[in-house]
Simulated scan of single mutants.
Amino acid sequence: MVWMTAAEALTILNVRPQTLYANVSRGKIRAKADDADPRRSLYHRDDVLRMARRANGRRKIDAVSAQAMQWGDPVLPSSISTTADGRLLYRGQDAAVLAASATLEEVAALLWECDASRIRAALPARHDAPPAAAAPTSFLGACLSSLATLAASDAPSLARPADELRADAATILATLTETVAGPPPDGAAGLTISARLAHAWGRPNQEDLIRRALVLMADHELNASTFAARVAVSTGASLAAGVLAGLATLSGPLHGGASAQFARLLALARQTGARDAVAQWLAGGRPLPGFGHPLYPEGDPRARALLEMLPKTQPHAALAAEAEAQAGELPTVDFALPLLAATCGLPDDAPLILFTLGRCVGWLAHALEQAQANRPIRPRARYVGPA
């Protein structure tokens, strides 16, 4: 069951009722009224189990470190982005507010702490980079190839001036843009990245929605791909090598590939109906793709910012209703991006493209920050093997 009673939650947590209620009021444990008895509340299983994994009192260093790797305390200090009170903040500015008007280039300038003109000047990408050995057949393959080419030729990041590294960052973003969208049309070299994508997809009237999505995907604290990028750059590797590490990590089905998992759930909903699709998925013991984010108990603000701009369509709307009814989960950006693509008539791989191109800005921001730290990231392992 997704929901449990107070007695069951208290048994698992081994705390007093006041502590349980305090965690609910702080948004750490979701609660809802019991349909069988509205005077009682039910508590979300995943939230209770996550809180139970936190040891009471002062934790030993190995427990703190282990938790830090799994939705625990932040692993590294960073001034780039964070989540607070259900909002995503870029250097203290609300990402949803920025998405209303800012371009991806302007957000890059904010996160990289430079002037947006430097980034615009780098578009289109440099053309002196050698082409890939073979023509990749997928968006992901093309991006991995172009980044690998840059990583093999770009200078290491170690001990280089910040301005030089920012120039590298602008070139990397421009190269990835050209890999995805192709060269700008004749006479339109000054197009923004979102306009380039809209032109490449033949949807110029949807440029504003594309721009919003790119801005909302620009960064998300120390997610798996960002951490991978920072680890690579912490060794002194080039910024391109860091972005390559980030993209390779993003390709996994539990990260950027979540949109592909949602597509399977959507196909199942079209076959069996939303209620049965959600029930079947949950019966398999799998988390619902596109729903529920540990950082946002009250709902993903990135998804909310996009969904308020999109019409309600089926079976998406029915899936959202059933996910909340059966699992207590709300839509995430992995729900919103496929809905945006379907609404705007974008290619099937548009959600991953928007995720990748937007998040490249954040990877580069973290790479720049990590390069200035000038020390390797080297966690310790807690050995649990044979003596």
Rank of each mutant, 00 (worst) to 15 (best):
T192E: 03
R50E: 15
P287G: 12
A152H: 08
A267L: 02
R39T: 14
A283L: 10
L197N: 06
Y90F: 15
V2D: 12
A132K: 00
D128N: 02
A336N: 11
A213M: 08
L150S: 06
L20C: 00
A159R: 13
S101L: 00
L340V: 05
W363M: 01
A248Q: 04
G273D: 09
W281V: 03
Q280C: 01
G284K: 05
A318G: 12
S79H: 12
L176C: 14
L354K: 07
G202M: 10
L222D: 00
H127R: 14
R26Y: 07
A9K: 05
I377W: 10
L346Y: 02
V215L: 09
T356Y: 07
A224T: 13
S81F: 11
C360K: 01
L216K: 01
A279H: 10
L191M: 15
P351K: 08
G187A: 12
D154S: 05
L337I: 02
G86E: 09
R166N: 04
P379T: 09
A122K: 02
A263Q: 03
A84I: 01
L144M: 07
V233T: 13
D94M: 07
G345D: 09
F227S: 04
V180C: 14
A148F: 01
L244T: 06
E324N: 07
T137C: 07
A318E: 15
Y296V: 03
R264D: 06
D163E: 15
A9W: 11
T149R: 14
A232T: 14
L307Y: 05
L176Y: 07
R270I: 01
A129I: 14
V215T: 07
A7Q: 09
L147H: 11
F262A: 05
D115C: 00
A188N: 02
V231Q: 03
D276Y: 01
L165W: 08
L165A: 08
L197K: 04
G86W: 05
P301R: 04
T149I: 05
W3A: 02
L214P: 08
R203D: 09
L10S: 00
A279L: 09
L209I: 00
P315A: 11
Q370E: 15
L173G: 09
T226G: 06
K32P: 00
V107W: 09
R275K: 13
A321V: 00
A258S: 11
P74V: 11
I377P: 12
L98G: 04
L330A: 11
R286P: 01
E8F: 00
A170V: 05
G242Y: 08
S153L: 13
A122W: 06
R264L: 13
A174G: 14
R264S: 09
A213N: 04
A269C: 05
L330S: 11
E178L: 03
A170M: 03
Q271L: 12
E329A: 15
L111Q: 08
V384Y: 08
V384R: 15
H127A: 14
N223K: 10
L250H: 10
S81P: 07
A279D: 12
L111I: 10
D349M: 01
T19N: 09
F262Y: 15
G242K: 05
G242P: 03
E113N: 12
M1Q: 13
G252Y: 11
R26F: 06
N205W: 02
